[in-house]
Amino acid sequence: MPVPAQTCGAPDPLERFNTAPADTAVQSLLTCLHSRRWARRIAAHRPYPDLPALLAAADEASYDLTPGDLKEALAAEALPPLPEDTYAVAHTALSAAHAAYEARFGQAFVICLDGLPVAETLDHVLEDIRSRLANDPEEERLVAAEQLRRLARGRLTGMLGRGAVPSAAPPRGATRS
């Protein structure tokens, strides 16, 4: 009976993620959502048979974020960049809205803009931040957690789609943050 042919190419990104050392997988996951508990939980349940299984695990772990996990994740987030041709007045309006949000909720404003045309970014962010200022703190915690979940999902998909999962051994002299 013939032996099936084996491919000699490099492993796909999901396979690299599944076989990477735990600390390497956790570091990769922290670039998607900066919650150590979330990242360790997902890394601990490897291997994943496919991307949908990994995304389902990431979603489940996101739903279990504690207030402390949420605070840790939000502290690492920044406002999305505005298009280069955005007027100074728009930057001022966004800065003022963001400051009002931080004063009200004590955390960074987070929003997932996946799939939104760049030209609509500013209006969408300003509209969303202003409407969310009316939320009570518990309601906003839930909204922020959902936005983080969506961001993590998109970042995970992008990381694996680009093959950006680090290999098990980084090159000599390489550093990771």
Rank of each mutant, 00 (worst) to 15 (best):
S131K: 15
A103C: 05
A108K: 09
A75P: 01
V110D: 07
H91Q: 06
L65F: 12
D69H: 10
D128Q: 13
Q107E: 08
I111W: 02
P117W: 13
P117F: 13
E72V: 07
D85Q: 11
G115C: 09
R130S: 15
A96V: 09
L79M: 13
A99R: 11
A99C: 04
P83I: 06
E127S: 12
F105S: 04
Q107M: 12
L51D: 07
P80M: 06
F109W: 01
P52M: 02
A93P: 00
D114K: 15
L113C: 11
A97C: 08
H91V: 01
I111G: 10
L126A: 03
E77R: 08
L65W: 09
E127P: 00
P81G: 08
H91F: 09
E127Y: 05
Y101A: 10
S95D: 11
D85G: 03
L74C: 05
A93Q: 14
S131R: 15
S95Y: 02
H98E: 09
H91S: 02
G68K: 10
A78L: 05
G68H: 12
A96L: 13
G106Y: 08
A58W: 02
D123E: 14
V125N: 00
S95F: 01
A88H: 05
L126Y: 01
R104K: 12
D69M: 07
E127K: 14
P117T: 09
S131A: 15
P81C: 02
D64S: 13
F109H: 00
E77M: 03
V89I: 09
A108T: 14
V110R: 00
D64H: 13
E84T: 05
A93D: 08
F105A: 11
T86Y: 09
A88L: 05
A88T: 05
A119S: 15
T92V: 03
L51W: 01
L126P: 00
F105D: 09
L70H: 11
P81S: 10
K71M: 11
P81D: 07
T121F: 11
Y87N: 06
D59T: 15
V125K: 00
S95G: 03
L113E: 07
A73W: 03
D69F: 06
C112T: 10
L51S: 06
T121R: 14
L122N: 06
A93Y: 06
V89P: 03
P67R: 14
L74N: 02
I111N: 07
A100Y: 05
P52A: 01
Y63N: 12
T66K: 12
E84I: 01
E72R: 12
A61E: 10
L126K: 02
A75D: 07
P117Q: 14
F105V: 13
T66H: 11
L113T: 13
L65I: 00
P52I: 07
A75L: 00
D59P: 00
H91K: 02
Y87Q: 06
D128L: 15
F109T: 03
P117A: 14
E60V: 02
L70F: 11
E60A: 14
E102K: 08
H98C: 05
H98D: 11
E84A: 10
T92F: 04
Y87W: 10
D123F: 10
